[in-house]
Simulated scan of single mutants.
Amino acid sequence: METDALVDTLQDAGLSPYQANAYVALLELGVASATEVAEVSDVPAPRIYDVLGALEDQGYIETYEQNTLHARAHSPTDVLEDLRTRSDRFERAADEVEDRWEQPELEGNEASIVSRFRTVLERAETFVDEAAHQVLLSTTTDHFRRLRPSLEAAYDRGVSVRVSLHTERETDVDTLPDPAGVATEVRHRPLPAPFLALADRRRACFAHHPEAYDQYGVLISDRTHTFVFYWYFLTSLWEQWEPVHDDQTDGLPVEYMDIRNCARDLSALDLSEHDARLRVEGYDVDTGEERELVGTVEAIRCPVPVEPDTHVVDLVGQVTLDVRTEEGTVPVGGWGALIEDVEATRITLLSVEPDPGSEWVDAHRDRTLE
């Protein structure tokens, strides 16, 4: 660093121009009289004693009498520590300014655009920490490890956690991080993919994969826009990829977070001969209040025929389960339900009577999406 630049930096660190010049001169001289320091630093002679006194008070130098006033620089240990502390404070302040500029509160905003991936990752961590029902995540193994503590805490409090891990093509499945106790189900996509996190159908974070030409992120707190990202997750990042972890046990109960998967599985049953008993957790469509009900499925209503091999994309329209409860029949819909009474966030198939056999359960459980 040039002398002028060093002087400027010391001024930024709190020294006056005269003090900075005098200190740099004394570093070069080693030990010198006050008069010599004044001559080298261009500090006016009448001011040099005050300047040296101030530098001594701040710990930069020490003075002593030897016929005339002399000065020498202290060991720079304390000075260096002070400068590095200031540097850290400046860096933290810069990060804070950037974070406050790039992380607008989403309470009153449907969507925000940010320029740094770190902002997206931090907001995703917050969304996972606050999730109550469901987390869907598309991420690399490195970012999965970063989010692991938050995912584990969500899993422990009963949140359904579904993760699509994307890696390079040649990645060995055995090298993937262990998701036990962290995720309900994990699927492996051996292709690069964007980062995507969805929480409770209300919040979403999206960012391009690292090699993308345009780097930006999207933060969303809006059910309608989040629904679009959900379908992207379902069709591109989930349905066609093989599970590598599933913590559901064999047999019943089987949990669903998407009504379409439940309807597709139940379509293999003759509901006039089998009582499929469900527990539905969700929201009252009219009031928005949480609601839970238990009953048997009377009918599946959908504009297209629902069969076991029906692709989930074919069921993009209305799917309604009429559930008979002790209070009467309740129409149950999925995400964004408008014409039903209840919007289901979690459907649990509790039992089927008469027992259709383990082959039926095993044939359909691997397609559930919580």
Score class of each variant (00 low, 15 high):
334 G>T: 02
303 P>H: 06
81 E>F: 09
196 L>N: 07
151 L>N: 02
315 L>T: 01
132 A>G: 09
124 A>T: 00
224 T>R: 13
96 E>A: 09
20 A>H: 02
305 P>K: 05
165 L>Q: 05
211 E>A: 13
96 E>T: 08
46 P>K: 07
227 F>C: 10
320 T>F: 02
350 L>W: 00
3 T>R: 12
211 E>Y: 15
242 E>I: 09
288 G>A: 05
209 H>R: 14
281 E>M: 04
291 R>W: 03
232 Y>P: 14
97 V>R: 15
9 T>L: 11
332 V>A: 01
70 H>F: 12
48 I>G: 05
73 A>W: 00
221 S>H: 15
262 C>Y: 10
360 W>M: 14
272 S>M: 08
17 P>H: 13
161 V>T: 04
280 V>M: 02
73 A>T: 01
179 P>H: 05
157 R>F: 08
360 W>Q: 12
165 L>A: 03
123 R>H: 10
9 T>C: 03
151 L>F: 08
25 A>K: 03
56 E>I: 11
283 Y>Q: 07
41 S>Q: 04
52 L>M: 14
272 S>G: 15
348 T>D: 02
115 S>E: 12
104 P>F: 10
25 A>D: 01
339 I>D: 14
278 L>R: 00
193 A>R: 09
271 L>R: 06
58 Q>V: 06
165 L>D: 04
134 Q>N: 11
327 E>P: 01
12 D>E: 15
311 H>D: 11
354 P>K: 10
139 T>Y: 01
312 V>R: 03
326 E>H: 12
255 E>V: 10
344 A>T: 06
351 S>V: 13
157 R>I: 02
221 S>V: 06
107 E>S: 14
252 L>A: 03
318 Q>H: 09
35 T>G: 11
19 Q>Y: 12
198 L>W: 09
91 E>K: 07
48 I>C: 08
276 A>R: 05
74 H>M: 14
97 V>T: 12
2 E>D: 11
6 L>P: 00
295 G>T: 08
256 Y>A: 02
94 A>D: 08
238 W>H: 10
35 T>F: 03
116 R>P: 08
213 Y>N: 09
